[in-house]
């Protein structure tokens, strides 16, 4: 009996001390004006996905109470589906492709809505590659888009150390000599090996959600990525 009383007392003391207070991260408790929407979109040439995370001063937020996100891609409006990523809620839509800019809407039952957030996406492109035989360098070409954002080329495979190049300007072409393809620490390959070469074009933006102050923020990162396979015989 005495032990039970002790346990009840300790439990009460712990409750009073506020142990385990954790922010209740539901959108009902967060003002639209305090929200930070993080939009990530990727079209890899095979399929596309749009992911949105909702952050706030109290952490990542789960949309509750009828609050919802929608995207309008190529004239078609779709609701975003809730999932989990690293233990936090994430809202996603799977698509066949990202043909261009799309719109994001946040609809709230007891707060301000946000409609028509434009997420800029660079135009789709095709990637071609050749060379890497005898002494020929790797020659890459794609459809240039001067306003398509940051361009990054990467080469990876079992026989090379990962290589990454960023272009200041989207020229639509790049040549990588064999000397630039460094073997991995394990040593140079002795047989033909497969390489994966990808070109990605990413547009990132940061803007306010609303014209008020504070007005929330939306950050977007939309990537068009194309990957081809090439064989290299050193």
């Amino acid at each position: 009996m005495r032990r039970t009383r002790t346990h009840v007392f300790l439990l009460g003391a712990l409750m009073l001390a506020g142990c385990g207070i954790d922010p209740v991260r539901v959108s009902d408790r967060v003002s639209t004006r305090d929200m930070l929407l993080g939009v990530q979109a990727l079209d890899d040439g095979v399929a596309a996905a749009i992911d949105v995370r909702v952050n706030s001063p109290i952490g990542t937020v789960e949309l509750t109470g009828g609050d919802a996100l929608f995207v309008t891609v190529d004239g078609s409006r779709r609701p975003m589906v809730e999932g989990q990523s690293n233990g936090a809620p994430i809202y996603s839509v799977k698509l066949d492709a990202l043909p261009g800019d799309f719109l994001l809407d946040l609809e709230r039952q007891a707060d301000r809505d946000v409609h028509g957030v434009v997420v800029e996406v660079s135009s789709p492109f095709a990637l071609a590659g050749g060379g890497l035989t005898q002494d020929l360098p790797l020659s890459l070409s794609w459809d240039a888009d001067p306003e398509g954002g940051e361009v990054v080329i990467s080469v990876q495979g079992d026989c090379v150390a990962p290589l990454t190049r960023s272009l200041d300007e989207d020229t639509g072409a790049l040549v990588i000599t064999q000397a630039e393809l460094r073997p991995p620490p394990a040593g140079p390959p002795s047989a033909p090996c497969a390489l994966e070469v990808s070109v990605s074009r990413t547009i990132t933006t940061r803007d306010k959600l609303l014209s008020t102050n504070p007005g929330g923020n939306v950050t977007t990162s939309a990537e068009q990525r194309r990957t081809i396979a090439v064989t290299w015989t050193p």
């Binding site: 009073l16 001390a17 506020g18 207070i21 954790d22 922010p23 209740v24 408790r29 967060v30 003002s31 004006r33 305090d34 706030s56 001063p57 109290i58 707060d111 008020t212 504070p214």
Partner: peptide
């Protein structure tokens, strides 16, 4: 006294505090 409740953060966010 011990206190616990919600304070306001930002424009209108309920943030637990104690």
């Amino acid at each position: 006294a011990y206190l616990q409740g919600d304070q306001r953060l930002g424009a209108g966010t309920l943030a637990p505090y104690n």
